[in-house]
Design a binder for these strands. Structure first.
Length: 496
DNA sequence: ATGACAATTATTACG
DNA sequence: CGTAATCCATTGTCAT
């Protein structure tokens, strides 16, 4: 037999196949571990997150000094140990939990479809989580006890003078025009909050404390209280309430002690600071790709699932009120029009963004009010603060700005959106009025698109930025405060 | 048409 | 300081 010389191409291909198989196998094993982890008791005595002497690997001369990074230094780089899923569950924590009179459950994995004690999900070595809990319940209580017309963000109208929170409420963002040149990034407003890729970043909707929550690819949720300067701790707290990439975070401005998070693992949890648990709200076979709440109706939750489905979930009843199949592929964002909360926009990998009217959605596959068509996947569709514009971002390297009666008047702005595999997709986000959209670029800057000029008018740049900021949040109460999050777990906060 | 596969990309931990 | 390892995105291309 003539022996076949293996061509370079074939060799490479075989290698790839082998690698992929190994990777798949590893993923499967991991998910098995997650499923079985109630019984699984693998423990390694020396988990990296408990190592004492942190090795400084930030070049001292570089200006890229992540604020108070020493403490986060110990956070292990890889997903699994970061989440404590497989190898860093320690007995001391179990006994602490038992002492604290939590139900004597065995180890609870974030994948188990049950509530998860916050302390159980806390991933740092010291017990500073209580401090976070105090902070959050502090400002959320303050808000609840204050007079009825004193809500966070000065944002209320139409609130009745009773204690009943059923009263119609409207969330009004702090608005105003910003001179974009005035936005500054200071070293103290930089921190690494979690390891790995950040999928979503969100400010707490209060002016009392500057605090962000981020969710990463590994299922961690990190908090950063930016106001904490130099007392014990660095204002950074990390939990692992999920077993996969966190697709969205929602904080109801009228109940800030409760925070929703959705995950590719199909779970939606509610962090309830009063009960000190990550409650289980919803669990599914399918991935949950986005989550949103109507500004009017905070009794229900909207989220997208699988390949094009949307659910309207009643929080009180704990069941789905409606579900629709709106797209041919995954829905990446859901956003409500702040001026008319019957109107919502979805963006989808099927290449379209659609605007829907909740009053006309009876069929399983309803007809959209209007559709913005792109040539490739659409990764976000957000209404402007006034609701008059819709900004969609697509991998076809376009940002569409749509306006008019039915948003039929669309103009396209070119923007390089080729983020590749390691960077979370870009999403053009509105600032504090209808004039600007903020979006990251591949050169570690933040492009600012002017709606009037239909082009990039400015770019935020800084030597302090060590990675590409890809996910953003504009502070709902503080005009000019913008948080950007990277694939390396850092958060940058620009402010006036 | 459908499906499998390669190439692409940036960040970081580690040697 | 260079480099291996990351690995639930996306798309075009080539095979079936």
């Amino acid at each position: 037999m003539a022996d076949h010389e293996i061509t370079e191409y074939e060799r490479k291909r075989l290698e790839n196949i082998k690698r992929n198989d190994e990777m798949l196998a590893a993923l499967k094993i991991q998910s098995r571990i997650n499923d079985l982890s109630t019984v699984n008791k693998r423990q390694r005595t020396e988990s990296k997150s408990y190592k004492k002497s942190p090795t400084k690997n930030l070049k001292p001369e570089t200006p890229v000094v992540l604020r108070r990074s020493l403490r986060t230094r110990g956070v292990p780089p890889d997903a699994i140990s970061a989440c404590g899923l497989k190898d860093d569950y320690d007995e001391t924590r179990v006994s602490k939990i038992l002492k604290l009179n939590f139900s004597p459950v065995k180890k609870v994995s974030p994948r188990a479809p049950v509530p998860l004690a916050m302390r159980d999900a806390y991933t740092s070595d010291d017990a500073l989580d209580q401090k976070l809990i105090q902070t959050i319940s502090g400002f959320s209580k303050k808000f609840q006890l204050s007079e009825n017309n004193k809500f966070p963000c000065d944002l209320v109208k139409g609130v009745e003078k009773n204690e009943d929170f059923e009263a119609p409420k409207v969330r009004k963002m702090a608005s105003g025009s910003v001179k974009v040149e005035a936005l500054k990034l200071e070293p103290k407003n930089i921190a690494r909050v979690v390891p790995g890729r950040i999928m979503d970043v969100r400010f707490f909707p209060t002016a009392d404390v500057t605090m962000v929550a981020v969710g990463n690819k590994f299922g961690n949720i990190g908090f950063w209280n930016v106001d904490i300067e130099n007392d014990d701790g660095n204002g950074i707290y990390m939990y692992c309430p999920h077993s996969g990439p966190i697709s969205g975070i929602v904080i109801d401005p009228f109940a800030m002690s409760k925070m929703f998070s959705s995950c590719y693992d199909g779970f939606i949890r509610l962090m309830d600071v009063e009960k000190e648990v990550f409650d289980l709200i919803y669990s599914s076979e399918h991935s949950v790709y986005s989550i949103s709440q109507s500004p009017h109706d905070t009794k229900s939750l909207y989220f997208s699932e699988g390949y094009g489905g949307i659910n309207m979930w009643d929080l009180k009843a704990g069941k789905s009120l409606s579900s629709w199949n709106l797209h041919d592929n995954r829905i990446n964002t859901i956003d409500f029009n702040s001026e008319n909360s019957n109107i919502l926009a979805t963006s989808s990998t099927d290449g379209t963004a659609c605007i829907w009217d909740l009053r006309h959605m009876n069929a399983d596959k309803p007809k959209s009010l209007s559709t913005v068509c792109h040539k490739r996947a659409v990764h976000s569709a957000y209404f402007s603060p006034s609701g008059r514009f819709l900004a969609t971002t697509s991998v076809d390297d376009r940002i569409a700005l749509s306006t008019g009666e039915n948003y039929e008047d669309t103009s396209m702005v070119y923007h390089d959106n080729q983020t590749g595999r390691w960077i979370s997709t870009f999403r053009g986000k509105w600032g504090w009025d209808d004039s600007y959209v903020f979006i990251g670029n591949m050169k570690r800057g933040v492009d600012i698109i002017s709606v009037a000029g239909k082009k990039i008018v400015s770019t935020l740049r800084s030597e302090l930025i060590s990675a590409i900021p890809c996910r953003f949040d504009a502070h709902p109460c503080k005009v000019g405060m913008l948080a950007g999050a990277t694939s390396g777990g850092q958060v940058y906060i620009w402010s006036l």
